[in-house]
Deep mutational scan, measured.
Amino acid sequence: MKVIFLKDVKGKGKKGEIKNVADGYANNFLFKQGLAIEATPANLKALE
């Protein structure tokens, strides 16, 4: 799953980066902790 990092995550990505991560990692950790959002077309456009 492609995500946009909202904060730096050690060993995974930095704020503003768009990366592929495992679905479970994104859903169970990144999204719940507010560290990333899904890289949907709307979210990508808002990032610009």
Rank of each mutant, 00 (worst) to 15 (best):
L6E: 01
G16H: 07
G24W: 15
A36N: 00
I4T: 02
K7C: 10
V3C: 03
V21M: 07
G34Q: 08
K7Q: 10
V3F: 00
A22G: 12
G16N: 07
V3T: 00
K10N: 11
A46F: 12
M1E: 03
G16E: 01
E17Q: 11
E17N: 04
K45V: 11
G11C: 09
Q33M: 15
A39Q: 02
L30E: 03
Y25S: 05
I18Y: 01
A26L: 07
K10I: 14
I18M: 07
K7W: 08
K32Y: 07
F5A: 00
I37C: 08
D8N: 09
A26I: 05
K14R: 12
M1W: 04
K32G: 08
N43L: 10
F29N: 07
I37V: 12
K2N: 12
T40A: 03
I37W: 05
P41R: 09
A39W: 10
F29L: 07
A46H: 12
N28C: 09
D8V: 02
A42P: 07
G13F: 13
G16T: 01
L30G: 01
L44V: 10
Y25T: 06
N43F: 07
A42S: 10
L47E: 05
N28K: 11
V9I: 08
G11N: 12
F5R: 00
D23T: 15
L44K: 05
P41C: 11
N28S: 12
F29T: 08
L35C: 03
D23K: 15
K15Q: 11
V21R: 00
V3D: 00
Y25L: 09
P41V: 11
K7D: 07
L35F: 11
E48D: 11
G11T: 05
K19H: 10
G16A: 04
I18E: 01
E17V: 04
E17R: 01
A42N: 10
F31K: 06
K45G: 09
G24I: 13
I18C: 07
G16I: 00
M1I: 15
A36H: 01
K14H: 11
G11K: 06
L30Y: 04
P41H: 11
D23W: 15
N27P: 06
V21K: 03
N27S: 13
T40Q: 04
N28W: 09
G34M: 05
V3M: 02
A36C: 03
K14W: 08
G24P: 09
N43S: 08
G16R: 04
G24T: 15
K12V: 15
K12Q: 15
I4R: 01
Q33C: 14
F5M: 04
A22I: 11
D8L: 05
M1L: 13
A36Q: 00
T40L: 05
I18L: 07
Y25Q: 05
V3Y: 00
Q33E: 13
F5K: 00
G16M: 06
N28Y: 10
G11D: 10
K2E: 10
K2A: 12
N28I: 08
L44C: 08
K45T: 10
F29Q: 07
F31M: 06
F5D: 00
D8I: 02
F5Q: 00
A26Y: 12
L47N: 09
K19I: 11
F29V: 15
T40V: 04
I18V: 13
L6D: 01
D23S: 15
A42Y: 07
G11S: 06
A39H: 06
E48K: 11
K32F: 08
M1Q: 04
K32E: 11
I18A: 04
F31I: 13
T40Y: 04
K19S: 08
T40G: 05
N28Q: 12
G11H: 08
N27K: 15
D8A: 07
D23G: 13
K45H: 09
F29I: 13
I18Q: 06
L6C: 08
N20P: 08
G13R: 00
L30M: 03
V21H: 02
D23A: 15
V9N: 01
K2D: 10
K45D: 07
N28R: 11
A22E: 14
L35G: 00
L44I: 14
V3R: 00
V21Q: 01
L44N: 04
F29D: 06
K19L: 11
I37R: 04
N28L: 11
M1P: 05
I37S: 03
K45N: 09
L47D: 06
E38R: 09
E38D: 04
K14Y: 12
V9K: 02
F5G: 01
G24A: 14
K12P: 01
A22H: 13
F31L: 12
A22W: 09
M1Y: 08
D23Q: 15
Q33Y: 15
G34P: 00
E48M: 13
A39R: 00
L35H: 05
V21I: 08
Y25P: 06
G34A: 06
M1R: 09
V3W: 01
N27H: 14
D8C: 05
N28E: 14
T40D: 06
L47F: 14
G11F: 07
F31C: 04
F29G: 04
K2M: 15
G24S: 14
V3H: 00
K10L: 13
K14D: 06
